[in-house]
Design a protein around this nucleic acid. Sequence first.
DNA 1: AGGCCCTCTTAGATCGATCCAACACGTCAA
DNA 2: TTGACGTGTTGGATCGATCTAAGAGGGCCT
Lengths: 347, 347
Amino acid sequence: MTVPPRDRTRRVTLLDVAQAAGVSRATASLVVRRSPLVGQATRDRVKAAIRDLGYVYDVGAARLREGRSRTVGVVLPNLSNPFFADMLTGIEAVLDAEDMAVMVANSRDSPAKQDVFAKRMREHDVAGIILCAATDTPDTFLNRARGWGMPAVQALRRISEGTDYAGTDYAGGMRQVVRHFAGLGHRRIAFVAGDRDHSALRERLSGFALGAELGLETEVAAIPLTHACGRAVASDLWTGFGPPTAIVCFNDVVALGLLKGLRDLGLRVGRDVSVAGFDDVPEAALAYPALTSVETRPTAIGEAAAGLLLYRLGNPDAPARTVVEGADLVVRESSGPPETAERVALT
Amino acid sequence: MTVPPRDRTRRVTLLDVAQAAGVSRATASLVVRRSPLVGQATRDRVKAAIRDLGYVYDVGAARLREGRSRTVGVVLPNLSNPFFADMLTGIEAVLDAEDMAVMVANSRDSPAKQDVFAKRMREHDVAGIILCAATDTPDTFLNRARGWGMPAVQALRRISEGTDYAGTDYAGGMRQVVRHFAGLGHRRIAFVAGDRDHSALRERLSGFALGAELGLETEVAAIPLTHACGRAVASDLWTGFGPPTAIVCFNDVVALGLLKGLRDLGLRVGRDVSVAGFDDVPEAALAYPALTSVETRPTAIGEAAAGLLLYRLGNPDAPARTVVEGADLVVRESSGPPETAERVALT
DNA sequence: AGGCCCTCTTAGATCGATCCAACACGTCAA
DNA sequence: TTGACGTGTTGGATCGATCTAAGAGGGCCT
């Protein structure tokens, strides 16, 4: 696809404005930048000229000269996941308020694509990037970015220390779930985890370890994080001897699928078996039965990440900062005390 | 927040590359643009220099000179809605393949913010924009854009003719729902619509009119398009005499809320009352009971919109085109034949 | 009157690329 | 030998802004 140059009518430039207002280009420039150096009368004349001619500021030209850009790159692993979409909403809101533009890219969890995007954003000279790293991103990635002089903030997934990071206390959230299950009297619990390794998984796993510490029997299953796989894993969990009486899922996407899969098996979730998810997506409250879930605030995380980046742009040499949003368990109908041992009469 | 200029080490420019390779700036430029005019030996030398010096192309400087940009603006009314997030995924995928960057903005359904974004994108000199117009956007909006020489594609919501448009056949989808309900034997049907006016609503309404044509009693309720309101509207529909036996919702967000609301009332959805939604979001199949829904393909629409824009950039004066994706009804458990008249024994 | 400061304005260089017209050089036909 | 032609290469102008350092003009003080 080749795109022909557009010229239409030549763009109105600051020079045109200056001439119309009877001042120099430099003065006109000062006016658009709201400099206090310019006299009121002159300012008014220039503003009038801007209106009359329909002048449009050229951010790109300014950036070229200034060497400073008002665009931020955001690289996410999966735009279709409502969680990341919400995070993007938070990022966008904060940057918008600072009159910054957001350039977005979807790595589809591929480090290779992520590299391509990093290069493209560098070519576009973004002021910095917010990165939710793809699985298997080498931990040198951020050092490279630093070498380029491009500030980077990690969000949700952490691949290396020494860089700003905004995320959720997944480990703490998971511990709340485990304590909740244990408190209800469950003795065998399972964690349906994702099959791809990143910090957000490791943190959940570390929290889940509390189960063993409390003397519970624990089990971990790894599956792709989709509705379909969550649904399908239900029967797997019931094949062996002594199936778990409580299951926590990596996120609500999987949990909602699992809920359906368990219903398909004729189990009454919340009585025969308990389920909890992560993220507390809006659908969690509507599910049947309503889903117990750990609330992680994607919008807040996005806002925090954007905030960190803005601060970093103003203070390039400040020490790295970390913002960890708390994660709170919301108990609903899908989790309850286990029934007595003879309850499972499946086969 | 003021951002100091960054200089670090001066940027490596084409001139540096040219000198290192012993050629002129112009030749180096031809190499980076993959022009066939350059001899193989020279090309190799330049490429080596690019690698050795770590040269990074400056898209902005190129754009300034060329007068042609490789960035596209996307303005959406609600990034948090998974439907739009999916659409963005489609847009991003197509533009990415053309090596174009995506600048995204969230109008939050406010025409005023939308105007601000349009201005910002113009200042950034985007090659074109994809717009899903905020409610109450004046229909002059796109004429203004045309006046600026900025190609615009409308997606999903149409505010004026004469511009490229990609959307879904909402009217046709709605007619399928109405026929489905009628075929099951329903005589009183309701449409839970949104309370904000735009083409996507009007099209659904026009499809719903088929109900009256078929001799059914019809009713329309307008509510904000949220889970909570969908849930709350359930009891309203049951207050009057002769409540509907089948209800179609503006989208699945509302439908999932309604499902919950009806369950709260003790109704068995799919038997006592039938429900259908729009969009067929992934959660629809997992809902209880599984939700009948009209499948509208957000990713495909995003791809179509991006395709239209790319074509438009290559053919500024081609006539406006319209792409309407078909919308197919997916029947699940939430819709079934009405039970006999005495079924409703609520109060 | 002369010197100084303060406010406002400006010419010219500059950012990093592309476009244009010209040109070097070799080959080949007349 | 000359001219035409094709292939590669190039200097200089240019895109639209900002930066720098200098200058105009007025008021105030000595």
